[in-house]
Design a protein around this nucleic acid. Structure first.
Lengths: 197, 197
DNA sequence: TAAACTATATATCAAACTGATATATCGTAG
DNA sequence: CTACGATATATCAGTTTGATATATAGTTTA
């Protein structure tokens, strides 16, 4: 029957940081969380309505006279439900990694196909790591100084009004991405030297 | 319009190894590929039919008189389509990692929640790594000796009639899982010492 | 040996989710 | 003043999941 509704809690969790509009939520996930989470507009807007109907979130009055954006905030009931979910155990992720599938299925074809595939994957991951390390440097400074560097605000305006504890968790989450990217690059190097030997 | 149909090529790819039934496909993915791929019955059976309709796979005659299982094999056209897909670039995976989301969203709650969460995650990953290392040991022997150890056949009967190149790719794919699990454990250790300091 | 399990095997479906597209307004660079 | 990109909300067909239904073969245990 497909019961998860992870989107419900993902959105509720973001609203627990601060009030946001559907557009802001989508952009935030896309810009700042994309290496471990994703949401689509097709989920965000209906879910916001459903959260209101369930009494877990509520519409805020549109500030500014002609303001187009509709912001939502979390309710007390929403906070309680969120806390419950946050403490529940996480099922191990059902990943679907297209690259790994291709690598695996290539086994009955000449190895040169896989060499090319792995080299492409490696540069993809190196690019990713570069971006992570950039953000890490800035976030580290922010956490230490309890103040946000200009460049970070430019590249991620969403984190503008985060407090120190939120920045710390953000930093630690990013470290997860860095560890993962490095592991994937190390694997590529291992495979390339294995296949070329 | 949601065009991927990754399931089509995942199934086609497995059929390119050898003929399989829907049930075998589901079990194989579940037992051997679960750390980077997943399929549900709800996808497998309709997709097998669709592949036949599209001329990419065909039904095999049921062997044995009262045999209940319906096997499918890949067609020449299927092989060509598969080869095309296998050479196409992979889009970076849109992951949805429930644990990372919870860790991130916990930022506005006391840190002790996250400590518990991370410790749970670490033992989950340590368990996973243990299994991977077990399989790795056996697969390594299999690749070196070009023969399958008894224990491996017992725990993964699916790989019974694989050739040496397939085993090698299987081994290398598993290494990806090992690198990833180790990276996650290393991250847990880093976070735990950070949060406890 | 009969009953209770467990694995094999196929099928179905509501709910969740994606990716693409439609529409309209605002700010601004040329 | 206008083309363009960012902001903002909405919709929907197609994909995928997770749960459940059904039935038979084999195996354990009372």
């Amino acid at each position: 029957m497909a019961k998860p509704k992870k989107t419900w809690f993902a959105i509720l969790g973001l609203l627990s940081w601060r009030p946001m509009s559907g557009y802001e939520i989508k952009k935030f996930v896309e810009n700042a969380l994309s290496f471990f989470w994703s949401e689509s507009y097709g989920q965000v807007y209906p879910t916001l309505k459903a959260l209101v109907d369930a009494g877990l979130a509520k519409k805020l009055p549109r500030d500014g006279l002609g303001s187009r954006r509709q912001r939502y905030s979390i309710t007390e009931r929403g906070k309680r439900e969120l806390a419950k979910w946050l403490s529940s155990p996480s099922e191990p992720p059902k990943s679907r990694n297209e690259f790994e599938l291709k690598f695996f299925l290539n086994s009955s074809r000449p190895q040169k196909h896989n060499l090319k595939l792995v080299e492409e994957y490696r540069s993809q991951q190196q690019e990713l790591l570069k971006d992570f390390l950039e953000s890490e440097k800035l976030l580290k400074i922010a956490v230490r100084n309890d103040a946000l560097p200009e460049e970070l605000l430019e590249s991620m305006p969403e984190i503008g009004d985060s407090d120190n504890q939120q920045l710390t968790v953000f930093y630690l989450t990013l470290r997860h991405g860095i560890h993962a990217a490095r592991a994937r690059i190390a694997w590529c190097n291992e495979v390339l030297s294995f296949l070329q030997s």
